[in-house]
Every structure is written in C-alpha cells, then in structure tokens.
Design a protein around this nucleic acid. Structure first.
Length: 510
RNA sequence: GAGACGAUAGCUCAGUCGGUAGAGCAACGCCCUUUUAAGGCGUGGGUCCUGGGUUCGAGCCCCAGUCGUCUCACCA
C-alpha cells in the first residue's frame, strides 16, 4: 500500500475513534474565537480566559503533555496541553490530532518557561481532519526549512501555497485589497459600478482574438468579451455620467510572465471630461490605493522604489521617441519620411538589442508604436504618461485638432510596462463610423485583430454622447506594480495551467 | 511558436564510472508532564514523469512525448 493510501486509512481510523469519543469534528458547525491570534498575543493578559480556532501547524508531544501551534492563517499561537489538566478523554482526543487538522480550544493565556505567550488548554474541539500530509515547513527565527516550493503545485493547488507560504499569501491578499481599494476610490468619487455582458456577438473595444462559445437556446455562436469599452460608453449615452466596470475579460492569446488569457480589467468613463481629467484621476487612484493597502505612496518593486506621491511625469510620445531614437521629430509625420530617417532595413537599439524590421511595418501608427516599444518603454520606471498616439492604432480615440494623424490619447507606464490606456472618447458618430470602416479595411487586408463594426454602438453615438474621458487599467499589471511581483501568475489565485495529464483533446481528428 | 534547463518517497533534495533506491522533515510504534527546526530508539513508505531503444544490466546513455521553470517571440 502506498504511503498516501495508508495515511488516508490511518486518518479515517482516527476520525472513527474521535466519533466514538464524542468529538466528531464534522458534527460541529461553529466555533467562536475571542480574538485573532495576533490580538491574543498583542493584548496578552495573564490568565485571561480565551477560545481560539485554527489549523494545527506544528505538534511536539512530550509524553503526558504536548505543545502545538495553531494558526488562523496569519499568525500562530502555541497551545500547551497536559493530560492531568484536560482528563483522559480529552487527552486521547489530543493524541488523535494531526498537523493540518482544524481545532478549537478553550483555556487561559500564560507564558511558558521559554517565554512564549501560549494558551493553557482546558478543552479541545476538533473541527476538521486533514487526510493528507500538508507540506508545512519548519521555521525558527525567520529561517525556513522544507515547505512547498514547486511552482507547479503552488499554482495547481493554491490552498497549499496560501497555507504554507506567507509571502505568497501576502502577495495574493494584497492584490485583493488593491481591487477593493480601487472600488472604494471610484465609489467615493461618485462613480457607479455597472455590469455588462460577457457573452457578445462581436467582441469589440480592443484588438485581440476572442474565445468562441456556443449558445444552445438560440443556436448561436457567441464570443467572450475582450474589453468593456463599447457597452460602458453606451451607458454614458444613456446619461449615466460616471460609470466603471471592474471585471474579467478574455483574450485568446498565449501565456507569458505578463499575460494570462483571462485577466481583470478596470474601465471607467466620465462624461463632460477629457484626458487631462483622467490623468489626474489615475494619479489620485494609484496614490490612494498605495496608501490604503501599504500605508505609503512609496512601494518597493524589485530593485527600485516607485513613488506614487508626486504627479506622474508627462511626456509627448513623438518628442520622446524622436529623442531616444535620435531622429528629428518632423520625420514622424509620415511613413516614408520616417523610414528614411531611420535608414536601413532594420533599426536596432544598441542599449537593449531590440530591433524593428522596417519592411514589416506598413503604416505609420504601427511603426511609431514599435519604436516606442524598442526605444522608450523600458526606461519609463517611475510613473509616466505618454501622450499623443497615432490615429491608425487608436480607432476609438478623439482626433487631436492640433495634430493631424494623431489622437487625444495617453498611456501610463510604470517599471517599463504599460498599465493604463486612456483617451478623450470619440463622440462624433460620423468620425467613429469612418474609423470602423478603416478597421474593416485592415481586417480585409488580413489583420484578424482589427476592430469589428458595431452598429448598436454607433446608433448610441448617433443619439448623442457628451464629450467623455475614459480609461482602462489592467488590474493584474497594477497589482504587479504595487506589490513588486515579477510575474502575473504571482498575483493570480488560479493562473491558466495546461491539464496535468496532457491527454486533453489536443489531437486533430481528420 | 523557439531555445536552455528541470521532473527521484507526502515535502525539500542527494544519487559517483551504467551494477540491489538514499537523507532530513512528515507518517507509524515505543520512551519522555514547559517544548519550540524538541529529543532518543525502532518501523513502514518509490510507476526514479510517460513510451520506446541500446545493454548481461538503465534513475543514469539514445530517441520520441507530457508537464513545468527561465529567456526570447507573440500580445497596442
């Protein structure tokens, strides 16, 4: 019999014996702790009667007495159980406990010979049985031994990671607190949280391939949303002036350190506002969230300290590219001029080795964004807004009246990565229809991520949308920036994983 | 999608030149009534990722595959 199988049987027998002793853990419905473990330790009063429930994370049996540590997930507190004090039955119950079980105790606070604040236990109430060995490490003075380090197991069985790895636990819970703080911020500013369809006939609002699914009742192919944008603007058209949605979107793309096929997107829209207002709101939001979750506007992310206190640096996109790529800014006005200014067939940034293949670039906007990626992005460490994006790659952003071919759009960058994308929204329905038609032309030319036509959205615009500022923030990215996480998987409870067996329906049947 | 690296006990890992599969923790038994990486004595536990191949003999060498990690590519 394997170790695991025999362990399972041993634990079943212990459970049966607990039931014989009248200590069936699964018969208990609730158990009230007087305080959390941290509060018990912080507010220590000698001999104070207490009750406390948690998971057994360590046991040391000393003949007719035992010590154990009980954790409420955040903090652990030591138990001291003496046979003479709890009696025969409770002592036998104690012997049937295992690391991993949940247990409730009553007793009083005391300090052991070695100076540890502990609970002197008088009664024991088992609350669950662990049927598997839990990979708790050992620790002393902050040093840790053993434990769970296999990333694959940590991602697939996240509960083990949450139990065993405090760092991982903190990161994930901080992410949840960030999400909660974002909602509080927007709610306090008078924004209304709305919910829009995940199942859509045409997935619009971004350039990405959607997931497809089938709706049986209407025998209809539907798509999972890739963005929130168009529905939210239809609500603005309904004269609800400040709306946001914070929810999951799905993009049928590969997995990487910074990409998961489903991710959490925040979009907010404010009528009668423009991108300047949005920039101020983004600054305030990051400042607020950093303070709420971490108590400081300065967060340490990897090697650098990011400060969300001051206003973000504001840079003109074209000017910055011209400067970093050492080309005249006028050359960024059309494709041929720009290509000749760059010279050659490929342009290499000697600083990082990244390159642009000029032959692959067939419109100005695409090339400008490529240059941004190669020459600018990675140097934008402290929070920075890049302002003024090309028309071709911004089909939903209002034209800049002072700069033909460009839009009133900005992106925010932190630690070299894009964290938000915002603009003064197009509210001219004629302009928007033309942009969609351009996108259709790009689609016809083979770009399967070009934006589809959306007549319902256009109808809403034709009925009138006030001037509006809007913004999208990748919440997973935001969480990475604020927590210092290096990969998106660290801030996702359950990142996308291939099936372990590997025998999914991969084979293409002829 | 490409390359590099990895997969051995529940966990963390070692495994020499190709020659009977190892340690610590966890588990089980005994001792131990203030320990804390408790300690002492003893016991059990393996699809060495999967499938082929080479060989008298494969955890180790070869081929194919699976999953993962990292880097790159893709991804506004």
């Amino acid at each position: 019999m394997s170790e695991e199988t025999s362990l399972f049987h041993q634990r079943l027998e212990k459970l049966a014996r607990l039931r014989e002793l009248g200590a069936d853990p699964y018969a208990i419905e609730r158990f009230e702790s007087t305080e959390s473990a941290k509060e018990l330790l912080d507010n220590y009063v000698e001999d104070k009667p207490v009750s406390f429930a948690g998971r057994i994370v360590a046991v040391r049996v000393m003949g007719k007495a035992m010590f154990a540590h009980l954790s409420d997930g955040e903090t652990k507190i030591q138990l001291y159980i003496r046979k003479d004090d709890v009696g025969e039955t409770a002592w036998e119950v104690a012997q049937l406990l295992d690391i991993g079980d949940h247990l409730g105790v009553e007793g009083k606070l005391f300090i052991t010979k070695t100076g540890e604040k502990s609970i002197y236990v008088s009664t024991l109430t088992p609350l669950s049985k662990a049927f598997h060995n839990l990979p708790f490490g050992k620790e002393k003075d902050g040093e840790r031994w053993y434990g769970l380090s296999d990333n694959e197991v940590r991602f697939r069985h996240r509960h083990l990671d949450l139990i065993c790895n405090p760092d991982s636990r903190k990161l994930l819970l901080d992410r949840m607190r960030i999400v909660a703080a974002v909602r509080r911020f927007l709610d306090s500013r008078g924004y209304l949280e709305v919910e829009t369809p995940l199942l859509q006939l045409e997935a619009g609002g971004a350039a990405a391939r959607p997931f497809l699914t089938h709706y049986n009742a209407y025998d209809l192919e539907v798509k999972l949303r890739i963005s929130l944008e168009l529905y939210l603007k239809r609500i603005i058209c309904g004269d609800v002036p400040k709306v946001y949605e914070l929810g999951r979107v799905f993009r049928n793309e590969g997995v990487s350190n910074r990409h998961n096929p489903e991710f959490t997107l925040l979009e907010f829209y404010e009528a009668y506002s423009n991108l300047e207002d949005i920039m101020r709101l983004v600054e305030e939001m990051f400042r607020y969230v950093a303070l709420e979750v971490f108590g400081s506007t300065k967060v340490v992310a990897g090697e650098v300290e990011i400060d969300f206190g001051p206003d973000w640096q504001r840079l003109d996109l074209l000017g910055t590219i011209a400067e970093r790529a050492s080309i005249p800014v006028e050359s960024l006005s059309d494709l041929t001029t720009l290509k000749s200014a760059l010279g050659g067939e490929t342009v290499v940034n000697p600083k990082n080795g990244k390159r642009v293949d000029l032959q692959k670039e067939d419109h100005l906007g695409g090339l400008i964004e490529k240059l941004l990626e190669v020459f600018v992005e990675e140097d934008l460490i402290q929070p920075t807004f890049l302002i003024g994006y090309p028309l071709e790659t911004s089909p939903l952003a209002k034209k800049d009246p002072n700069r033909p071919g460009f839009t009133r759009r900005f992106e925010g960058y932190i630690r070299g990565k894009e964290v938000c994308n915002a603009f003064s929204e197009i509210n001219d329905p004629i302009d928007q229809r033309e942009r969609f038609q351009d996108q259709l032309a790009q689609r016809a030319a083979g770009d399967d991520e070009a934006h589809p036509m959306d007549e319902d959205f256009l109808y809403a615009l034709e009925c009138g949308m006030p001037p509006t500022g809007g913004c999208g923030i990748g919440i997973d990215r935001m969480a990475m920036m604020l927590t210092g996480a290096e990969t998106v998987r660290q801030v996702l409870l359950f990142p996308m994983m291939k099936p372990e067996s590997g025998d999914s329906d991969e084979e293409d049947q002829p």
